[in-house]
Amino acid sequence: MMKNTAEFGKHLFLIVLGLLLLYPLILMLQMSVKNTEQIVYDFFGLSGPFHLENYARAWEEVSPMIWNSVVMAGGSAMISVFVSGLAGYGFGKLKFVGKEPLYWLIFAKMMLPGVLNLIPSFVLAWKLNLLNSYFAVILFAVGGAQPFWVFVMRTFVQGQPKELFESAKVDGAGEFRTFLFLAVPLLRPVLTLSALNVFINVWNDYIWPLVTIQSFDKRPITTGLAYLATTHVGEYGPLMAGYVIASVPLVILFSLGMRQFVQGLTGGAVKL
């Protein structure tokens, strides 16, 4: 009996928590099919008529931004996962002079806050002629993601049984082939997690694209939505529809990589 109550308590706790996590989605959805009067004067009402045209209007404005965000977030994720995967393997398995100092150089940046970087990064992006291009976002996102993910990757590579890699050596596989055909499949969950994480961070980033992406047709959804909120004052219905649309790609991505995402970290002890 006692045991059942405890078990029930745990489930109740998690279900309530889950519902609380869902509330913004629910509010967004119900506001997105109403017009301003219905929202302001009848916030809870769902009596209709439903204004599905909000979605048509929102789609027109939001769809180009989604593409921009996908390119920037996807590009960052792919490059980052490749770079940090390589480095994780290099630092975790290979031997070379200066390995430790180099690793510490990267690792230390994890402890160093990035706030000082905004303005000089902006100037650097400008001098490198990157402003207003997707690369302004991609390259800096990859750079910013390295310290943490190199650290994680190295932990995971070190956690793999040594014999595995040794046997590959006997086969005479080149180091890169060992990495590609042995390490990558083994590390797939954490690699996927890393890619998803970088993707989501770029997808949600606001300040950096705000200052670097100036062209109207290259704006990602974050700055784009904030912009729509100021240009469509009071049009809450279409705005919310826009928010809903902007969330869809992440939901799709999540359902594709869900298993890796929720289990990606279980293979190693990530800690300090």
């Binding site: 996590l21 913004p24 989605l25 967004m28 989501i200 997808w203 949600n204 606001y206 959804i221 974050t222 939505l225 904030a226 928010y243 902007a246 969330s247 992440l250 939901v251 999540f254």
Partner: peptide
Amino acid sequence: PMFIPGIV
């Protein structure tokens, strides 16, 4: 929570 853009 990760899948709803923070700005939203």
